[in-house]
Structures are given as structure tokens and as C-alpha cells.
Design a protein around this nucleic acid. Sequence first.
DNA 1: CCCGCTAATGCAATCGATTGCACGAATGTT
DNA 2: AACATTCGTGCAATCGATTGCATTAGCGGG
Lengths: 327, 327
Amino acid sequence: MIDIARMAGVSSSTVSRALSGSTLIPEATRERILELARSLNYQVNVGAANLRKRSVQTVGVVVLGDSMQSISDPFILNLFGSVADALDEQGSSVLLTRLHETRNASMQTLVTSGQVSGLVVIGQLTWHEHLNRLQHSGLKFSVWGAALPDAAYPVVGGDNEQGGYLAASHLLARGCKKIAFFGDINHPEAGLRFAGYLRAHREAGVTPDERLRQSVLFGEPRLLHVVQEWLSQDLAFDGVFATSDVAAITLISALNARGIDVPRDVKVVGYDDIDMAGHVFPSLTSIRQPTKLAGHALVSLLNEAQAGMPKRSVILPTELIERESTR
Amino acid sequence: MIDIARMAGVSSSTVSRALSGSTLIPEATRERILELARSLNYQVNVGAANLRKRSVQTVGVVVLGDSMQSISDPFILNLFGSVADALDEQGSSVLLTRLHETRNASMQTLVTSGQVSGLVVIGQLTWHEHLNRLQHSGLKFSVWGAALPDAAYPVVGGDNEQGGYLAASHLLARGCKKIAFFGDINHPEAGLRFAGYLRAHREAGVTPDERLRQSVLFGEPRLLHVVQEWLSQDLAFDGVFATSDVAAITLISALNARGIDVPRDVKVVGYDDIDMAGHVFPSLTSIRQPTKLAGHALVSLLNEAQAGMPKRSVILPTELIERESTR
DNA sequence: CCCGCTAATGCAATCGATTGCACGAATGTT
DNA sequence: AACATTCGTGCAATCGATTGCATTAGCGGG
């Protein structure tokens, strides 16, 4: 910067002001300096500027779990992209970190060491208590997940209850009477989806068959096996609501293999509306969560936390995307 | 740091040395200072340290393409995770950036502005020329993609030719005579896979039918439509090699819908071995690329570039994962 | 007892920017 | 013509660390 100052015949103060767009510098001078900087391929050293300004334009995005490898869920990737987009828009950089269960001190470290100004946390699960503790210690962050009643930290999540309701209502409206539920009821988000499934049945005056429930975990490795086991029980059903598209697609493949036609004999609704939902045959009806909004909401809540505003949580509406699997 | 110095009754130089593990400081003093720092929850300001040391422990990972949204390819995510793991291991942070076609100047910027020491680039595609230019301008980076003959930059990629060879050989060994190829031959990686497909045919003494080629782009939105169009041509075939698992799964769904049994009537091999390959029915035989190795290789090549060592490229072996779609 | 040497420590410059304050010039006001 | 503003610019301190060099204390050897 001093070199540029010399070449432009001004002081480094003037260069700094010109580059940062201060109104003190007349347009003519600024143009000259800008041009010079461009031709020298000069960029302000962000680290030095941050040091003096005592601020950082970087947000940490923390993905909880063993490793990114384990996150095979395409929905998480979309969400992640949307957070990155939102941060881009406000001119922040994204420092990515994955955390294992063991190294939980490191979330604090990122902020304390001045690398990031705050955190967006994706993947709540078993970390709930730890997140509560961090919130009380004054760390600034926002979290994607289910809005647990005793969460002290700001949460953004899809409206899982509504999602489950939309799915089941849609199947009922399509004439299904015996709708199976595929998902792990103990998982916070899947549990809410199940609650919505029940509400839809109640409102329609239909009593759901308790035998038509199969616990399927997210990312279950033996998914195909579980599905086939379940089908071999020869239960009577004409519809399925699966809490993940991966499970739904697996199920449809298995049904087709047994000569059961989707959607004629059985109608299926999935969850997350992953890319492949539109690619398989029959294409899959699914519940879409507004990832675009989610990213913005997570960033907004983080900004609010940093501004010292009171903690707030956001529940985003879900939407049913109708495709051939329920025609 | 000055506060700690005062409290420990030493100068900030001593604290700095103690914290960075200099041998000048006797063990007793260092322990005392470390304990004090811990109790005050103190962390060295990374920005200030970098400024003085004139070094950065952060690597930029650049994902090329419109937006993370468009990267529906789960393989890319795995790769990304593996790069992040490798950087973690050597104690580097990961600054994530997505770039659009339009803003291509910004790769330089990240390094020039001192935010990162180098870049790992994922997604080569149409950027080849631009990457060559950047390499000549002295930027330090490594790239995942196909090792194009005139690439001036270090590349890590799967052995696409071998992958295509493995896939086609496997189908031929399973008795297939008419093997269709699904993929965009103009895409560098898919082109090599096609070359391998041809070599396998040559070695087996089988002449591939030129009509059995369907150009399918990665991430094609109208994939399902394309597949159905193709099937309606009623071409005779008993095997398919698809250059992506998503295309392969779509194809199998469509075949099943027409009463064509996989693997009995037609055998199918995909590429990338995505998670869902094991979940669908019939489960999908696929070509796996060693993502774990890929991450390490990308980081190694970047380190070498930064150390001023001559450019080198790495081609990683692929592996056929046999499942039901070719039984 | 003095000298030399080593082990610890501190001083102060430095990294590359930003910004409060002071100053001089130009302009406007009576 | 004298004075008050406004405008543009530069000086120098500052952000929070690191590190070359100087300095001091402590110790053993001659």
C-alpha cells in the first residue's frame, strides 16, 4: 500500500481511504489510485485490516458428525450451499469445520482466536446439551435442527409436523386407507413428522394401523435389507410416507421388483425432495423444505445474536411436490 | 497476551515464546504461563500472528459451478470431505468458496489478499484454459479432474480409462454382447471412460454398436425424459455402462417399468458408487474412485506447488464394486 | 576473585493496514 | 478585507502478535 502511495504521490492514508471508498477522497484521486492498484494487481491484506478494525468478515460453518463422509444426505449439502450463498451475499467468507464428538472445545476456539465472528451449526442431534452450554457461555451461533422446547440457542428448522401432515393428507386425499410410516420416531425431526401423520389421520377420521410402522434410520446402511424384510411380512397397505427420499426410492424399487405397481397399487411420498426424486421412475412425490430461506434465516439469526438481540427461532413452511408416485 | 504477561510477571515476549513452545523457555515457566492462559480462556489471535509471521495456515477450497445447489453429485461431496480431512490432519483451516463462471478473477484475490496460502479446485470442466493461465501467473493450486495432456497445473483424478475398461470388461465377462454407453463423450472424464469401454471391447473381440450411445450430461435436469426417449427407440441391448450412478438408477427404474428385468434381461454398471447404489433394488454395480486417497493427493500436490517443486499429477486407481445389477 | 559462557528474559522494531486529529488551502460570507 | 467553513491530506498511534538483538543473571573454570 505504501508503494502505491508513493507511486500516486500521496500518503498511505489517502490510498487506504480511496480503496475503502471514503467520501473524503475526491472522485478524481480515487480513480487514479484504483487504477494504479488494479494495474499492480494489488489487494488489501485482509488479515492486517481485520487486526486494525478489530472485526472479522468470516463466519464458521460447523458440520457436526464423524466426518463429512458420513453426511450422505443430499439435503444437508443443499442447506450448506444455501448458507454459503447467504453469507456470500453479505460479503462474509465461509470457514468450514467438521467436528467429531471428541473435540468439542474447538467451537469456542474458532471465535476466541479471532478466526471467525460467529458460527452456523448444522446437525444438532446429540449435541443439544453442549450447544446449550455454549450459548450460556456467550458464544454467538445459530443452529439448523428441530426447535427443542428447552433450546437456549437460536434454531432454524423446517416445519416437520406440517410436513408429515401434508404427506399423509395428500395420500388420504388420493384415496389411500392404509398408510405405512417409514422413519425413526425417536429422532426429533422424524418424530414431529409422525405427529403430523397422526393429525392428518385424525382429521380424516381414519385410524392408522399400528403394524404399519417401520423404524428406518437416516443413512441406515442396511436400508435395502430392512425394506425387504418389512415387505416379506405381507402386510396390507396402499400408501407409504417415508421420512427420507432415499428410503422412499429404495422402497419403490423393492415394490416394483415384487410386481406391485407404484402408484396404482401403492402410493408413496418421500421427504426432502432430493435431486434424484425427479429422476427415478415413477418420479417421487416429496416434501420440500425451503433450503434457500433456511440459509438466510440461519445467517439472520446469527447476525441478531451478534448484535446482542434476544434469541429467536424460525420454523419454515414445507411444501408438497407432487409427482407420479401418487398420481 | 500483555495481560497474561503482567499476571505472570514476565514480558509478552516470554509469553509468546512459551505459547509457541520455544526451547528458550524453561519448562517450569512455560507450565505456569500455559496454565494461566488456559484459566483465562485465552487464544492467540491467529490474524495478528499471521501478519507478523507472514504466513497463513488456511487453504481455500474452490468448488466451480453455478452454486453449491447445482452440485447434486454426492461424489463431489465425498471428495470435498476427504480434502477437508486431509487439510485438518496437517492443521490447516478450510476456507470454502464457490465460483460462478462470471467471477473468475476472485481465485487470485483469495491468495493475493492473504486469506489463504493456496487453493484446491474441485470441478475442472470449462475452466481448463483459465486454470492454465492462473498456473502461469504463479498461483499455487491443485485440481481434481481429468489429466488433460496440455494441463500446466497439477491434477488429481481417477483413472477414468481404467474405470471404463473395468465396467465394460465386467459386462462382457457376464455374457453381455450389446453394451450401451450412457454419457457425454465430450466431457473430459466421460470421454476417457468411453475410451476404456472401447478398449475392453477390442480386447474381447466385440464390435460395439454405434447406435448404443446416448449422450447424458452430469446433472442433466431432464434425465428421466432422455432415458425414456432413448428406450422408446427399441434398440436391442443386454448391458449398459452409465457414467454416473444417478443415470444408472434412473435407467433401471425405467427398465423395470417396461417389464425389462435387471439383471436378467439387461445388466447395468454405474459410476462413482454413491450411497444410494447399495440402497436401490436391484442394488447397483458401480465403479468406485478412492476419495480418501484423492483428498490426500490434492493436498500433497498443493504443498509441493507451494514448496516450489515441479508440477506433478496423480491418477488414482478405480475399483469395481459388484452388486446385483450384474449378477 | 575475575572472566567467559550459557541460559533466560526483555526491548523495541515489525507485519500491513485503519483512523483520530491537526493542518493548510480553497471557498464562501459579511 | 477579514473571518468562518469546508475539503483534502498527512502524521502518527494502533491493532496483537513475533523475533533479532541486547542485556542480565548465574555458574564453572582458571
